[in-house]
Nucleic acid binder design. Structure first.
Lengths: 191, 191
DNA sequence: GGTTTTTGATTGACTCGTCAATCAATAAAA
DNA sequence: TTTTATTGATTGACGAGTCAATCAAAAACC
């Protein structure tokens, strides 16, 4: 069986399975066995590759942040003009890849994890800083010095809408969510 | 020892201890034994009064919601005029009783719990509905038909700022948080 | 008032299950 | 044969929930 070079494949499978499992369970209270089973391997192998449960979760978290980050960058290169850049940042957060029930559940639980894990805390802080920085950068040409404060509010609003969706059990609607935030944006920048 | 009427005292102590313990641990991953110990009794007694771990958490949740609800009502009777009412609702959410590290941690974890517990889900839905309804009611005289949509955004913003504080490990600042939301309110209603 | 009975309060010890982590062993490349 | 892949079995810890037993106030009774 040992086809060489299994490691990256196994790791990816475990990360994917972790997100799915956390999404299903709704909490971080999922056993390594279950994750491993979903990923099609034994729990021992999961430990072999990741060293421990925390490492598995952190890897899953890094992955969601990486995907999100990539999506934002991708959207930004397509945007022309500051206003369009800000909208791109907003829409990226509510894209079909990020704004899914299981991913949202994972985010929520990462917030819980960040209260006890330094590494999780660090990662989420990076995300928040980046979101704020991106928004501020896009807003500055539009509203100058107010950009910092407005960016903070927009970021909080985005997170808040995320949180609502985490509670909602209905299907999520990224377009509707984006529209909400953009409406607030319009008010903040005066149309 | 059986001084009659211990039950309500014990229950209250357990609820308080639960919030504190969840705040310390940062997650719902706290054993009944620890909660009971902090409340000054055996774990068996905790089970005796509440029946199970979930019941204890739900009671703690109901308590925080009750306190929050009372505070909002109290602030509303003091307010004169719609604008003042809306501000009162906002400030109540960030009051010293509600905007505390352990309480915020509890809220966050209740959101996680709501993904698996129907009763927790119900309670949080009640909170969200009530918050939205209160805001909408206060906003209607100010902006008419737009009140519903704006209330939704304000509610999400409040939750979002809460979430930020859940991540922050510094001391929380309710006044600053209120100011943020009120600034957004000003923009929404046009000064 | 004194005795007995009842009942709420309380706990230590125990059961049962779960889970993270480890290890020894096997199999297939290189 | 050395390295990589892989797993079944095992261990050690921990936690929820149960139970039988104890303790002491209070109520009922004489």
């Amino acid at each position: 069986m040992p086809k060489l070079g299994m490691e990256p494949i196994r790791r990816a499978a475990l990360v994917k399975a972790t997100i799915a499992e956390v999404g299903d369970a709704g909490s971080l209270d999922v056993s390594v066995s279950r994750i491993a089973k979903r990923a099609g391997m034994s729990s021992a192998l999961a430990h072999h590759y990741f060293g421990g449960k925390d490492q598995i979760f952190l890897a899953a978290m890094r992955h969601t942040l990486t995907v999100y980050g990539a999506e934002v960058r991708g959207a930004l290169v397509m945007a022309d003009g500051p206003r369009s850049r800000v909208e791109a940042i907003i829409r990226a957060g509510f894209s079909n890849t990020n704004f899914r029930a299981d991913v949202i559940a994972a985010w929520l639980n990462f917030y819980v994890m960040a209260r006890t894990s330094d590494e999780a805390h660090r990662l989420l802080t990076v995300y928040q800083k980046r979101l704020h920085s991106n928004l501020q950068h896009g807003l500055r040409p539009l509203i100058g010095a107010r950009a910092g404060a407005v960016a903070a509010r927009m970021a909080a609003l985005i997170d808040g809408i995320y949180l609502r969706q985490a509670l909602s059990r209905d299907a999520v609607d990224g377009a509707e969510a984006s529209a909400q935030v953009i409406a607030a944006l319009d008010k903040e920048i005066g149309q």
